[in-house]
């Protein structure tokens, strides 16, 4: 454990200067672009799934990492996005037009959840978000429009310039573009007035408020942006899977995305990416040990928190 972490630190040291960092990043991007040419369907499927979770992790990272808010119900936003797209497409909407609606509804959900609760202490917030997550899932299970317990099936594949996206490679590149956009947005937010305001609040809420920052409003922005990320991811998820059901958005889903963020290191973009990669690959690699893998997952989470509470990716040095 200590060794592998030390390994990351050393790796990071080698990548120390900007030039090597840039070169490493370029190699990584070329690798990701060329992967479908050499990979088989299974690998491509896993890779697409990884990209998808990276988007979700980056979104939740804004809430948890940047603004320092616990959220145990992130799957709710992801569900709202997926169901919005699924339902609207059922009524004949074009997929691309459903995206703004998916964003709109998930942001509204974010305001409904965040508005009254962001004043609460962090542990109360954890339980409230969890409660909202469960309410969303149970509601989806009990309503007619969401297809009840069996969910929505037969969601159509989207097309772009007449080309129908139905190959796994199509979705691979689509999600890759989403990841790039998500990274860009996350980076820009981090280095902005709003990004700094989140950090001030996280470090000392009273001092931040004394500096004229409205904590509730600032936190609510984090919630809304995080929700928008989840909504977009959900919309794409719906058309990739062509079927969605309430159980996809259970608490385990929320917990997993949160783990990706924390495992990698809260508030760090490479950390969130690393966490998501780990999260998808770990169960795939340990497919052989079956159900036991989730047990190891829990144990590892505790070990990581005890020995490295700041996450796997190292802190920036100042």
């Amino acid at each position: 454990m200590g060794n592998s972490v030390g390994g990351i630190d050393r790796f990071r040291k080698i990548l120390g200067d900007r030039k090597t960092q840039g070169a490493a990043l370029a190699v990584l991007i070329i690798f990701v672009i060329l992967l479908p040419l050499v990979a088989n369907n299974y690998i491509e499927e896993v890779a697409t799934n990884t990209l998808f979770y990276i988007v979700l992790a980056l979104g939740l990272n804004i809430v948890v990492g940047y603004a320092g808010l616990v959220d145990l119900g992130y799957a709710a936003f992801f569900a709202v996005g997926a169901y919005t797209t699924g339902i609207l497409m059922h009524y004949g909407w074009n997929f691309w037009l459903t995206i703004p609606m998916a964003v709109l509804f998930s942001v509204i959900a974010g305001v409904i959840i965040g508005g009254p609760t962001l004043r609460l202490r962090s542990d109360y917030l954890a339980i409230v978000t969890l409660g909202f997550g469960e309410i969303t899932r149970i509601t989806a299970r009990n309503l007619k429009i969401t297809g009840g317990a069996s969910g929505l099936v037969g969601i159509q594949r989207p097309s772009i310039f007449g080309h129908i996206l139905n190959q796994i490679t199509d979705f691979y590149y689509l999600f890759f573009i989403l990841v790039i956009l998500a990274v860009l947005v996350a980076m820009r937010l981090h280095n902005s007035r709003l990004g700094r305001a989140w950090q001030y609040i996280r470090e000392d809420e009273d001092a931040a408020e004394a500096m004229g920052i409205d904590p509730v409003k600032t936190k609510l922005y984090a919630y809304m942006i995080g929700a928008a990320f989840g909504g977009i991811a959900g919309a794409f998820f719906a058309v990739k899977m062509t079927a969605i059901s309430p159980e996809t958005f259970a608490f385990t889903q929320s917990a997993m995305i949160l783990l990706a963020v924390i495992l990698g290191g809260m508030g760090k973009i490479p950390g969130a990416i690393l966490g998501a990669v780990f999260l998808v690959l770990f169960p795939e690699i340990f497919r052989g040990i079956g159900q036991t893998r989730m047990l190891f997952f829990g144990i590892m989470l505790v070990i990581i928190m005890v020995f490295r509470p700041q996450g796997l990716w190292p802190e920036r040095k100042g």
Binding site: G68, V70, L72, S122, D123, A126, A255, L258, L259, I262, M266, Q291, T292, M294, L295, F297, G298, I299, M300, L301, V302, M305, V306, P309
Partner: peptide, 26 residues
């Protein structure tokens, strides 16, 4: 002992919950 932030403690509790839950499931 490390005076870790409350969020870390909460996440650890989630980890313990996962461990017990999946342990019994296995």
């Amino acid at each position: 002992n490390k005076q870790a932030p409350r969020m870390s403690l909460l996440i650890t509790a989630v980890g313990v919950s996962f461990t017990l839950f999946n342990g019994v499931m296995v």
